[in-house]
């Protein structure tokens, strides 16, 4: 059964012309990728567009795909590049903040909270679920500094290892580990009463 196949095998099957393999692959990763995008850009409409673009890039790059890394690593790397392009086109100030923050101490990003991409209340999943816990979680995630939020989402949604996150983000493994530690600490602090 193709449903038991690994991501890499499915992608190779799709590269060979098996469209059903792509369908299985897409259904496995559509949710995590979409949530990663929607929490990163802060807009459901933009997340829809980004999500579609990322998968189209996967489709067009299928002939060059080689299973040198896990499929999620490849997929989220494409997604991250697409997000950076999106920032360049629509929110250069966010990109500038994103880049400048890369050299700062991960703890020194409190001012980012006021300049996050979008208010958590506007996210569609918050509006749909109308659940207080979900809203609080979303708020807590959205209030994370961008780099910490990125690492956290790659770890939670992409299920990437520290090394894979470091590969996707282009940072060192220890830097990634530090950012993830700070992100989890902040979330624990924000959601303490829910734990």
């Amino acid at each position: 059964m193709q449903t038991d196949w690994s991501d890499e095998r499915l992608m190779l099957a799709y590269r060979a012309g098996d469209a059903d393999a792509f369908t299985i692959l897409y259904r496995r990763h559509r949710g995590p990728l979409y949530r990663y995008l929607v929490r990163q850009c802060g807009s459901a409409a933009e997340a829809d567009e980004l999500h579609q673009d990322v998968w189209l890039k996967v489709i067009h790059a299928r002939s060059q795909y080689e299973p040198l890394a896990r499929f999620p690593t490849w997929l989220f790397r494409i997604a991250r590049h697409r997000l950076i392009d999106h920032y360049r086109q629509h929110a250069r100030h966010l990109l500038a903040q994103h880049e400048s923050a890369a050299g700062e101490d991960a703890e020194g990003g409190e001012e980012w909270i006021e300049r996050l991409p979008a208010a958590s209340e506007e996210m569609p999943h918050v509006l749909l679920e109308r659940h207080d816990t979900a809203r609080r979680i979303s708020v807590a995630v959205a209030e994370l500094p961008p780099l910490q939020r990125e690492v956290f989402l790659l770890a939670e949604e992409g299920r990437l290892t520290l090394d894979e996150i470091a590969t996707v983000t282009g940072c060192g493994r220890e830097t990634t580990k530090s950012r993830l530690r700070y992100a989890l600490g902040k979330l624990r602090k924000s959601l303490q009463d829910l734990l």
Partner: peptide, 21 residues
């Protein structure tokens, strides 16, 4: 995700429980 970094299983479980978008 983390072989030598346990992370925070409680936070992760809470997040995944409510991540349905």
């Amino acid at each position: 995700p983390q072989e030598d970094f346990q992370g925070d299983p409680q936070v992760s479980a809470l997040y995944r429980e409510h991540a349905h978008a």
